[in-house]
């Protein structure tokens, strides 16, 4: 057990609020009767994750989360949904009977993830921010990591993405 003085109260209160919101929104994603509502709930989950990253002093990751997931992925997602099946109101086809199968799978996944995380990081603590802006993991360090030791995987990933983009274009164009 940790002592009460070790807990940064404001941070934990913040985490509680964010976590609660994320759980409610997460339930919303699967329970919503309308695709757009589900997608918007997912946005809330993503935003919560970003907020959690901020709590963890990982601002860069938080901002990336917002830029990539909220700004790009979810917008494209909504864009697609609204273009194709955009009716307002309840949609009968959203939920189906596979929920019975899905629930245990989800629980199992949750269990495994929780176990792995606890096993791996249970006692680690993130160093508190020190005074004026100095972060445990600043942006420069991340870029150093990407462009020095992990340069080759980064490039490989880029090429895979490029191939995927070109492939998508080839598939989409019929002529």
């Amino acid at each position: 057990m940790v002592l009460a003085s070790d807990i940064q109260v404001a941070q934990n209160v913040g985490f509680a609020i964010i976590a609660l919101t994320m759980i409610i929104a997460g339930v919303g994603v699967i329970a919503a009767r309308n695709v757009v509502h589900a997608a918007l709930s997912l946005v809330v989950v993503m935003a919560g994750a970003a907020a959690n990253y901020v709590l963890l002093s990982a601002e860069f990751v938080a901002v990336t989360q917002v830029l990539v997931y909220i700004g790009a992925v979810m917008v494209l997602f909504l864009f697609g949904v609204m273009l194709t099946r955009a009716q307002v109101g309840k949609d009968a086809e959203v939920n189906n009977k596979n929920a019975v199968v899905a629930a245990p799978v989800a629980l199992l996944l949750f269990g495994v993830l929780a176990y792995v995380l606890l096993k791996g990081f249970s006692d680690d603590k993130i160093a508190a921010t020190t005074g004026n802006g100095a972060k445990p993991q600043d942006t420069a360090a991340i870029s150093d990591l990407i462009f020095k030791p992990y340069l080759l995987p980064f490039w490989a990933l880029s090429f895979v993405l490029l191939a995927a983009v070109i492939g998508a274009i080839v598939l989409a164009r019929k002529d």
Partner: peptide, 13 residues
Amino acid sequence: DAGVFYMLAVSSI
């Protein structure tokens, strides 16, 4: 630290 990045991210909201 990543102010520019942040600015671009939130403007997309």
